[in-house]
Design a protein around this nucleic acid. Structure first.
Length: 294
DNA sequence: TTCCAGGTAACGC
DNA sequence: GCGTTACCTGGA
């Protein structure tokens, strides 16, 4: 088999793949199997390098954003307790560059779902509508179905992938993307404001999902998705006594406080909060923060 | 078993 | 504007 080894300093592969930005990588041996675009790939981290079977160096470097100046990005984070703890915990976590349609479609499926379930839905969509590809001639993975392929399915067929009410939204968005009415590639040229507006006009896409897609597929590193995890952290850390704090105010705060790399800061806070919660069984609090009062 | 989750969009005030 | 509610499903 053809192995590629590339230098990958300041990079933590398992953490990056398990941080809730991408949902299709499966553990396999000492590494992971999945796809980058339509390329089937096996990946493994060996100290400061990334070893891959399938895919070339350029593809890997681009997908994992190995060119992001991580230390500079981290240095630009605001200096506070929650941020420092998250920064320490998430060393090597990178915001990757995902294919636009795949990212958009996956996040439409994510609403009101936990990570484990999003993974299941993504897997079913791939198995049902994607194409099988072999890695090293044996291990089979499936590509993510094109917008055209999803658009050709019926809502009923999509519901069989456990999408529930999301099926209608996914189908609507797939049709818009397949017809060219929503030209995801062309949208790269838009400003953050305009891009967000276009995304939010698609069925099943609100502010949160639009921000996820902007961050994970359009490399808009300021985009700051606010979900229930992040909201808990923000409230606890930055507004401990605020009685009323609506979405608009929260958004204004994150925009100003976290700045140009807000998306990275968000991802670090998010991943740290999730991992702290699920690790210590009994303590339902976020590590590094004060316990919640009831 | 029952509850509710990493959200959106429609509705009522 | 702002808060409330229905929408599907399966894991805890």
């Amino acid at each position: 088999m053809q192995l590629v080894e590339i230098a990958a300093p300041d990079f933590d592969l398992p953490m990056t793949l398990n941080s809730g930005q991408v949902f299709h990588w499966d553990k396999a041996g000492a590494g992971f199997v999945g796809t980058i675009g339509d390329e089937p790939v096996y990946l493994e981290q060996r100290e400061d390098s990334l070893v891959a079977s399938g895919g070339d160096e350029e593809l890997l470097r681009n997908y994992f954003a190995l060119d992001h100046p991580l230390s500079e990005i981290c240095a630009s984070f605001p200096d506070d307790l929650a941020m420092s703890a998250a920064k320490k915990f998430c060393r090597g976590l990178r915001i990757i560059r995902q294919p636009k349609w795949e990212c958009l479609a996956t996040f439409i499926c994510s609403s009101m779902k936990q990570v484990a379930h999003i993974r299941q839905i993504a897997r079913k969509l791939r198995e049902q509508f994607g194409e099988a590809r072999k890695i090293d001639g044996h291990r089979v993975v499936h590509t993510f179905p094109s917008a055209k392929r999803i658009a050709a399915a019926s809502e009923e067929q999509l519901r069989e992938c456990a999408l529930g009410y999301r099926a209608k939204n996914l189908l609507g968005t797939a049709r818009a993307a397949a017809s060219g009415e929503a030209d995801l590639e062309w949208w790269s040229a838009l400003s953050d404001i305009d891009l967000r507006a276009r995304l939010c006009a698609l069925p099943g896409v609100g502010a949160k999902i639009a921000n996820c897609v902007m961050l994970f597929a359009y490399e808009r590193l300021r985009a700051f998705p606010i979900d229930v995890w992040i909201e808990r952290v923000l409230r606890k850390q930055y507004f401990p006594r605020a009685r009323k704090l609506n979405a608009a105010r929260l958004r204004a705060f994150t925009e100003e406080y976290f700045g140009d790399h807000g998306g990275y800061a968000q991802q670090y806070l998010f991943h740290h909060a999730r991992m702290s919660k699920t690790k210590g069984k009994s303590s339902g609090r976020v590590a590094g923060l004060s316990p919640s009062r009831t």
